[in-house]
Computed example of a mutant assay.
Amino acid sequence: MEDNSIVALLERHGVRPTANRILIVKALAAGRHPLSMRDLEIEIQSIDKSNIFRALTLFRERHMVHAVEDGDGATRYELCWSEDEDSDEDEHMHFFCEVCHRTFCLYDRHVPDVSLPEGYRVSSVNCLVKGVCPACGRKRKC
């Protein structure tokens, strides 16, 4: 993802484009799967953990990232491709492989609507399916 696209994404969500925030978005965009805080720390060694955490918190508030609770109890982050800071129209399901412990995005599987009793308000929905990914399934057959 190019810097001008990242700046446009940040501005569309009402986030001031600083050098650190641009680096964090670049790392998230380059990730092939949702990234943990530790993944981001390793990827971006020039930014300390507290600055990464503050940026991710801001990105979550502005609907710029999804926080995915994976099957190992960690939180992973991925870019949200929604068009504004007030909604997440691109929420999708995730798959956690119990063998390789990777979390995969299932972009074509949308999170089902959740109907709650009166008085309850939804702030987010996390839909995680656990099992064995295709690569690990092939290894087990051999």
Rank of each mutant, 00 (worst) to 15 (best):
R76D: 03
Y107R: 15
F95D: 07
M93C: 14
G119Y: 05
V114A: 15
Y107P: 11
D86E: 09
H92W: 07
C100T: 02
L116F: 10
H66P: 01
H101G: 06
L116N: 04
G71S: 05
H63Q: 06
V65W: 00
D70F: 01
G71Y: 00
D72Y: 04
H94T: 04
T75A: 10
C105A: 15
R76K: 15
V114E: 09
F95E: 07
F96C: 00
H92A: 12
G71D: 00
L79W: 02
D84W: 04
A74Q: 14
E69S: 12
H94P: 03
T103Q: 01
V114P: 04
H92L: 07
A74W: 08
D108H: 13
D113I: 10
D113A: 13
P117N: 00
L116T: 13
H66S: 00
P117W: 05
V99Q: 14
E89D: 14
D88T: 10
Y107G: 13
C97R: 05
W81L: 14
E98H: 07
D90E: 06
R109T: 02
C105I: 12
E118Q: 09
E69G: 07
A74G: 07
H63K: 12
D84L: 01
P117S: 01
E78W: 00
F104M: 12
E85M: 10
V99P: 07
